[in-house]
Amino acid sequence: MTQKTTAANETMMVGEGVGFARIRRITGYLVGTLDRFNNAKRAEENDRVKHGL
């Protein structure tokens, strides 16, 4: 991870500009994070609804 730190009010801050990693199954395999999805798969992931039992 790239570290970006700033001194805000003399406190060292870690993680500015760092997003959350969101791992999803794409077609049977996993993908490191949503950023790598193509546009169509991103839209599909966004539309997914949870299935109740």
Partner: peptide, 14 residues
């Protein structure tokens, strides 16, 4: 024949 369960796995790298 082949199946799996999807659920959100998020991670905060910090």
């Amino acid at each position: 024949g082949y199946g799996s369960v999807n659920h959100p796995v998020d991670r905060d790298p910090v």
